[in-house]
Amino acid sequence: MPLALIIVLLDVTLVYHAVKTGRVQPWAFIILMVPGVGGLAYILIELLPEFVGGPQARQARRRVAKRLDPEKQYRELSDQLAVSDSIANRAALADECMEIGLFEEAERHYDHILKLPMGGEPLYALSKAKAQFARNQPTDAIATLEDLQARWPGFQSAEGHLLYARALAEAGRTDEALEEFHAVVVYFPGAEARARYALLLKLVGRTAEAKVVFAELLIQMKRAPKYLRQAQAEWISIAEKQLSG
């Protein structure tokens, strides 16, 4: 049997499999438009991990699938919400909206949840503030975070505290932002808070203080485990460049 015919038969079989298993987008197009290569990619990314198993294989498959079709998960979660408008389904869709940059829609979902009888949770308010900040609406994010603190005074979040400091800075409330950064660096895990604090110090002309904070960041990271240094590589690099510049 000619090789070309074998490839055609294999591709047709793989397209049929993709349709039956709900993977028609984008795989049917890829397989048909790139004969042989598209089918091989489908086997390696979709089929092989199912046989090999393991969390790392599944994670790798999800990453590649996300690149090929960034809105696949969004469509699936939208369909789930249409079938059952539960808090869990709406929150999952809102989280996915944040992942793919649909910040305005994400904010609407979180706001909807917060208005429900069982949706009054501080984490949803924090997520709403994140969406507002991502939409370049720092004043709205500040208001949401301050309302969160008033409604749930016992709620503590280093991530939320850092977001509040960043929103204050973006809103031009620099002195207040510096105070919040100074407070959050004491307990924020990782290097981001210190790096952002030092960058703001430098921006307002307090260069000597900024260098001290950058130096403290590098000392802290030097003592940290290797995996943590790798996770904080972006902020370590910023500190190194700022001190060497």
Rank of each mutant, 00 (worst) to 15 (best):
L48M: 13
L48T: 11
L48G: 09
P49T: 07
E50R: 10
E50G: 01
F51R: 14
F51T: 08
V52C: 03
V52Q: 14
G53H: 06
G53N: 10
G53C: 11
G54N: 07
G54S: 09
G54R: 04
G54Y: 06
G54Q: 07
P55T: 14
P55Q: 14
Q56H: 09
Q56C: 10
Q56T: 13
Q56M: 12
Q56P: 02
A57V: 01
R58Q: 14
R58V: 09
R58L: 13
R58T: 11
Q59N: 15
Q59W: 14
A60C: 11
R61A: 02
R61K: 00
R61L: 08
R62N: 08
R62I: 06
V64W: 07
V64Q: 05
V64C: 11
V64R: 06
V64A: 11
V64I: 15
A65Y: 11
A65S: 13
A65V: 08
K66T: 09
R67A: 14
R67C: 14
L68M: 11
D69E: 10
D69G: 00
P70D: 10
P70T: 10
E71F: 05
E71S: 04
E71R: 08
K72T: 02
Q73I: 10
Q73L: 13
Q73V: 09
Y74M: 13
Y74T: 10
Y74D: 08
R75N: 06
R75T: 05
R75S: 01
E76Q: 11
L77K: 07
L77Q: 07
L77N: 03
S78H: 05
S78E: 11
D79T: 14
D79C: 12
Q80Y: 03
Q80V: 04
Q80T: 07
L81E: 01
L81K: 02
L81S: 00
L81P: 00
A82T: 05
A82L: 04
A82D: 05
V83E: 10
V83P: 03
D85N: 00
D85G: 01
S86P: 05
S86I: 01
I87E: 02
A88Y: 02
A88L: 05
N89S: 07
N89Y: 09
A91P: 11
A91F: 09
A91T: 15
A91H: 12
A91V: 15
A92F: 00
A92D: 06
L93V: 00
L93K: 02
L93Q: 00
L93G: 03
L93W: 00
D95N: 08
D95L: 01
D95A: 02
D95G: 06
D95W: 01
E96C: 12
E96S: 02
C97M: 01
C97R: 01
C97K: 03
M98W: 03
M98G: 11
M98Y: 02
M98S: 05
M98R: 12
M98N: 07
E99Q: 15
E99I: 14
I100F: 00
L102G: 00
